[in-house]
Amino acid sequence: MRPLSYTRASTVDEAIATVGGDSRSAFLAGGTTEIDLIRLGVTRPDVLVDINSLPLKEIESTPDAGLRIGALARMTDVARSADVVRRFPVISQALLLGASEQLRNMASMGGNLCQRTRCPYFRDGVSPCNKREPGTGCSAVDGLNRGHAVLGTSDDCIAAHPSDVGVALVALDAVVHTLGPSGARSIPIDDFYLLPGSSPEVEHPLERGELIVAIEVPPTPLAERSLYLKFRDRQSYEFALVSVAAAVDVRDGRVADVRLALGGVGTKPWRARRAEAALTGGPATREAFAEAAAAELEPAIAHKDNAFKIPMARRAMVRALDQVVNGDAR
């Protein structure tokens, strides 16, 4: 690994000032992606500012019955929080279906939001990759792209977003609270994740030195009936080929309210707004679920190896909706 300097921030202000004032520096939280990518030569900071001593680990209910998750809360702690399990099961399930217990013990929630793609051309450190070296081209478009995205892609990048919990948070309209050199901001999570467009190297609207301090989930009673369904090449410890976060409120056989998001298929955690619009007010039937799923995947663009994700995502959406509505185990 290339040489690094290290400092431990003792206050949030100190961390922001240090990273904000030095373009060679980066925050260090759980390190599960960051240390990996530095060792691979993909990212090249000279200074790491360790933020793990900062008081940003609380998981608490907000006065309006929402949820506030400190940016340094570990994935394990959020997943095992009795309050999260009861009121936001989709968040707990998404966390527990991601990574391994060791990684979940290390990885922070703020860090998870900044997780980088698993695209092998990004990670190999040498292939042309617009995300790693802007302007060099995308090796995946005409390369091995079985794991890549079918929604939200551009000519410059088709890398799939790897997060599981990000999918649940996007479904629930979470808000990302930050502090930075220009003060405090609250960013709706769907705006926090940027589409690649012509600048895939820019993944978030954060300025230098801007630090995620908390993730807030608004009060969402329908989330008590929610689930995360994930399909992958192995039974455990693998990134999603397709995943679905779903929460549905059914009244008198009709969909009164619904939240749906997809993982594994988008260049960002993918809020399924087309499907939500198709479902809302309509019958809670498998036929309606299938029509809504088809509407969501209608703009999908397949490449050489990943066309299978489109029907797989449709079926996964139907199954997730069916399970959350009917409590159907299969």
């Binding site: 290290y6 260090l28 240390i35 217990e101």
Partner: peptide, 13 residues
């Protein structure tokens, strides 16, 4: 007392 991966942890931290 939490299991973690030593390869992704900096000793200094």
């Amino acid at each position: 007392d939490r299991r973690v991966l030593a390869c992704l942890t900096l000793a200094v931290a």
